[in-house]
């Protein structure tokens, strides 16, 4: 039934800070090409888990692989092979659009020729060719987010991590941003996304919900709604998150 390979495999992953267990023996897989929603209340351990998956933090015990690279041993290879975008940090405001593209292309060791080609194609796809000499800080938030997403994929990663990519964005732009996510997923890129908008949870192929450091449940949105007899994902989320004990 599962003909696609798993791009993320996590096994009993645990992270402790002193005597506080932020992530408590979580295990799950993310399939190649799926949109995977990683949800949880504030303080449930999402950010900690995501940092480990991006090669920015080491597990205390347990482990796993991202794109075949080991979370404990191959951190540098993981960083090189994934895309990452967050709402808080993504682009340099005081650099121009094309300068940002060149910077990130260089960081991912693309050749000058390849950066030029990618840059042209990206700006055409985003309808931003006329804006390439603008400072990123002067762009409307929606454009910035779209550009940041495309730049996060400049090195053709097989998986891209999106950390609350649409926070504070206006409703239409938020949906146009999801069009980009769908397009990327259709072309085979795996999307790992966190969000506080529960309607966006419905757009995911599968969703996991973390509560107090463990994965309280994981399934397709339709299956979760049926299991919790809920009309929408917001209700599912609340039912699970209200069980949280730790503050």
């Amino acid at each position: 039934m599962n003909e696609k390979k798993d791009i993320i495999v996590v096994n009993e992953l645990t992270k402790k800070f002193g005597n506080f267990t932020a992530v408590d023996h979580i295990s799950f897989e993310v399939r190649q090409g799926e949109i995977f929603g990683f949800l949880g209340a504030n303080g449930a351990g999402k950010t900690t888990a995501m940092k480990i998956l991006c090669g920015l933090s080491l597990p205390t015990s347990g482990g796993g692989t991202v794109n075949g690279y080991d979370l404990s041993r191959d951190q540098e290879k993981i960083k090189r092979n994934i895309g990452y975008m967050s709402q808080k940090f993504s682009l340099y405001s005081d650099l121009k659009v094309w300068e940002n593209i060149r910077l990130f292309g260089g960081i991912y060791r693309l050749s000058g020729k390849s950066i030029k080609e990618k840059s042209d194609a990206m700006l055409r796809y985003l309808n931003m060719t006329d804006l390439k000499d603008e400072l990123v800080g002067d762009l409307p938030l929606g454009w910035k987010q779209k550009l940041a997403f495309s730049i996060a994929m400049i090195h053709n990663p097989s998986i891209v991590f999106l950390d609350e990519p649409t926070g504070g964005v206006d409703p239409e732009t938020r949906r146009l941003f999801w069009d980009l996510i769908y397009e990327a997923a259709e072309s085979g890129t795996t999307i790992f996304v966190t969000t506080h908008y529960m309607d966006e949870a419905e757009y995911c192929d599968r969703v996991s919900i973390m509560v107090d450091g463990v994965i309280a449940d994981l399934d397709a949105p339709a299956a979760l709604k049926q299991r919790y007899q809920a009309a929408d994902m917001d209700t599912v989320f609340r039912q699970l998150a209200y069980q949280a004990k730790r503050e």
């Binding site: 949880g40 504030n42 609340r238």
Partner: peptide, 10 residues
């Protein structure tokens, strides 16, 4: 409530 999860918002 910006950046606050759905439960805490409620």
């Amino acid at each position: 409530t910006t950046g606050v999860d759905a439960v805490s918002r409620k």
